[in-house]
Amino acid sequence: MIVRIMGEGQVRLADSHLAELNDLDDELFTETERGDGPGFRRTLHALLDKVRELGTPLPDDSLEPSELILPSPDATLEEVRELLRGDGLIPG
C-alpha cells in the first residue's frame, strides 16, 4: 500500500501493519470528535511517526497513486475532522 503524508511524500507500507495503525486511528477519531486538541496533536504525531517507522520511503521523484492520504503533522483539528471518513482516516 502506498501512503502519502501531505507535505512530506510517500511511503510503501505492508497491509499487515494496518491493524496496528487502526488503533491509533481510532484514538485520533475519538479525540477529534471530542475536540481534545492536546490529545489530537499527540495521537496525530504518533500515527505519522508509526507510518514513517513501519514504511519504506519512496524516492522524491517517484509519483505513484496513493491508496491512503494522511494529513500533515501541522494539520489542525478542524482540517482533520474534514478528512475523516465514517470511522477514521484508515479504512478497516
Rank of each mutant, 00 (worst) to 15 (best):
G88R: 10
D36S: 05
P71R: 01
D36C: 00
R85W: 03
E31L: 14
P91K: 10
E82N: 08
D15R: 12
V11R: 14
F29K: 07
F40C: 01
E33N: 06
E78F: 00
L18M: 15
R41I: 07
R42A: 10
D61I: 00
E33C: 03
D60K: 15
A75M: 01
G86D: 12
T30M: 13
T32L: 04
P57N: 02
D74M: 08
E78H: 05
K50N: 11
D23A: 11
P59Y: 08
P57C: 02
E79F: 06
L83H: 01
G88F: 11
P91F: 12
I90C: 04
A75C: 05
S66F: 01
A46K: 15
D36W: 06
D61A: 02
I5G: 11
R42G: 01
N22S: 10
L24A: 11
F29D: 05
A75Q: 04
L83P: 03
T76H: 08
D36V: 00
L63D: 15
L47D: 09
L28P: 06
L44I: 07
I90M: 02
R52F: 01
V80Y: 02
S72R: 13
V80S: 03
R52Q: 07
R12A: 15
L44E: 06
L24M: 12
G88I: 11
Q10L: 02
V11M: 10
P57K: 03
L84Q: 06
P57F: 01
L68D: 08
R4I: 01
E82T: 14
L58T: 04
G37V: 14
G39M: 03
R52I: 00
